[in-house]
Nucleic acid binder design. Structure first.
Lengths: 138, 138
DNA sequence: ATGACTGCAAACCGTTTGCATACTG
DNA sequence: CAGTATGCAAACGGTTTGCAGTCAT
C-alpha cells in the first residue's frame, strides 16, 4: 500500500483511490483475474468505478512494471501482481490458473538461447490440463 | 492435397476450392500466418474469397485437428499446419515466429505433471527476444 | 435435389479512445 | 491552480454470426 503510493509518485503518476483499489485486488489474490473480474470485485465498494478506469490503471501498472499481463488464449487477458516470469497452468474444466515453480525452466531457457541464437527477453509458458479436483469428479 | 480431401470427406465436410486453398497456404509456409495474412495471400488467385470464409475454414481444420492455433498475445491468432505441440520463438523486432525443437521439453512436462498433479493435455510455450538478424542491426 | 458452403454485412466482445467533469498535488 | 485522472459513451479491431444465393455430392 505504502509501496505502490511511493512508486506512483516517483514516476509522476497521481495516487488515486481507484488505482490503489485495482492494485490491491491484484496484490491480494492468486486467481489471476481479468479486467472484468477486477471490476466486479470493486463495484460494491467503488460504485462509480468504470471498466475503462480498470483498464487504464492496469496499463499504468504494466508500464511501470509492477504487474504482468497473461494471455492464455481465453479471449481476455489476465493480470498478475507477481512480475517475475513464471509458468502457469490452466485447468480446462474449472478455469483456474495456478503458478508453476520457476526453477525448472532454467535449463530450458539456456537450451533455447543456444539453439536459436535469440537473446531471450521474456517467455510465456502455459500448460493446460485437468486439475486434481476436477479429475476426481470425472 | 489428396490427404486433406480424404480427411474432409471422411468427416462429412465438403471439399471446396476455398478450403483447399486455405489449407495449402498453411501447409506451404513456415511463417505462422494470421487469418488476414492468409486472406491477403489468396486474394489474387481467389478474388471472391472472403475473410469470413478463411475463419470458417480454419475453424473446420481446428475441429478436425489438422492445424493448431497460436496465441502469442499480438491481438490476432496465428495458425500452424504442424499440429504437434512445439515451442515457438517470436522476434520482438521483425515479428517472425519460428519453431523451437520439441525434444528439450519432455523433462519439463514430466516435472510439471509431477509437481502440479494436473494431467497435461497441451501446452503453449512462447519465447520472446531478438533474432540473430535483428541483433546485427542494433 | 438437398443440404452444406460462400460471401456479404451486421453483430459481437474485449479493449481503447475522446471528452467533459472531478480531483490530486 | 494546473494538469492529470475518472467515467461515460462511442470507436476500434479481430472474430463470429445470420442469411440469401451458390455449389458439392
Amino acid at each position: 500500500m505504502v509501496e505502490i503510493t511511493k512508486i506512483l509518485k516517483e514516476r509522476g503518476f497521481k495516487v488515486t483511490p481507484q488505482r490503489l483499489a485495482v492494485f490491491n485486488v491484484l496484490k491480494n489474490t492468486k486467481e489471476h483475474p481479468c479486467a472484468e473480474t477486477i471490476y466486479n470485485k470493486l463495484l460494491p465498494m467503488y460504485p462509480t468505478m468504470s471498466l475503462a478506469t480498470v483498464y487504464k490503471s492496469l496499463e499504468v501498472f504494466k508500464s511501470i512494471g509492477i504487474i504482468q499481463e497473461l494471455d492464455l488464449g481465453e479471449g481476455s487477458s489476465r493480470y498478475d501482481a507477481n512480475t517475475k516470469q513464471h509458468p502457469h497452468i490452466h485447468c480446462l474444466s474449472c478455469g483456474r490458473v495456478e503458478d508453476v515453480d520457476n526453477d525448472m525452466i532454467y535449463d530450458l531457457l539456456d537450451n533455447v538461447k543456444a539453439r536459436t541464437g535469440y537473446n531471450l527477453i521474456k517467455q510465456q509458458l502455459y500448460f493446460y490440463g485437468y486439475c486434481p479436483d476436477c479429475q476426481k469428479t470425472h
